[in-house]
């Protein structure tokens, strides 16, 4: 899922300081699962903003709603009635949701309440970890199911570098060296010889370096 973390409330408040009435739109997708932008977080943020503004003697009116997903036009469409009389929309979705709202309601001021951080999973309740670098050309079959693109701080394809010690990355004792993990796993699988192959340079044009990407499935297109 996409992991996002709410921005400091002061920053969000600053984005809407000129507004009298705002719509806060939560998202029932990834950000609900990672507990940062679902129904509850949307209401907490609305309440916090109202309190802040009342303390400033400049009350703010809020409307809250949580869409099934903000990354699908069909779930944004029904917001139209709510959008009409607000001065701004605060999206608690990932960056995709913010942009989908801005695209659909092009005459509205749409602001992000979250910092979209990474694609990952939950480690334990309340802890999420990055697992995929979205490089567009998966190599996990060559690295024992551990991604060096995102889990190695240097994205090294022929690791580990000389900064790996005691299983940790040179950047921090709290970060596992991805290549130590890869080594351990390949060893356990009896596939260490695979690590002797020189991995060729990566084709980054399949990643974001090639410009915004698009995926098309003609067989499911309608019309």
């Amino acid at each position: 899922m996409i992991i996002a973390q709410q921005k400091p409330i002061k920053d969000i408040a600053a984005m809407i300081e000129d507004c009298k009435k705002v719509l806060l739109v939560g998202c029932a997708g990834c950000v609900t699962v990672c507990l940062s932008g679902g129904e509850k977080e949307t209401e907490v943020l609305a309440s916090s903003l109202r309190i802040m503004r009342r303390l400033q003697g400049n009350p703010l009116e809020t409307v809250t709603i949580t869409a099934t997903r903000q990354c699908d036009p069909e779930y944004i469409e029904p917001l139209e009635n709510l959008v009409k009389d607000v001065d701004a929309i605060i999206s608690l979705a990932c960056g995709v949701g913010v942009q989908y709202l801005a695209e659909r309601f092009h005459d509205k001021w749409v602001v992000p309440a979250q910092n979209t951080m990474f694609v990952g999973g939950s480690r334990t309740h309340g802890v999420w970890e990055e697992r995929c670098g979205l490089c567009g050309d998966c190599i996990l079959h060559r690295t024992g199911g551990i991604c060096p693109i995102i889990r190695c701080s240097k994205s090294i394809l022929n690791g580990p570098c000389g900064g790996s010690q005691y299983g940790k990355c040179e950047i921090s004792k709290d970060v596992d060296c991805a290549w130590q993990l890869i080594y351990d796993r390949m060893k356990a699988l009896g596939k260490l010889d695979k690590l002797m192959e020189i991995q060729p340079p990566k084709d980054w044009s399949k990643s974001r370096d090639g410009g915004p990407r698009k995926a098309i499935r003609e067989d499911v297109m309608i019309g």
Binding site: G162, S164, Q165, C177, Q180
Partner: peptide
């Protein structure tokens, strides 16, 4: 190139040097 005999995994350091 460089080699670091003091980094880990130690047993892979020589292999990586060979690489």
């Amino acid at each position: 190139a460089v080699a670091n005999p003091f980094a880990d995994p130690f047993e892979f350091r020589v292999a990586r040097l060979e690489k």
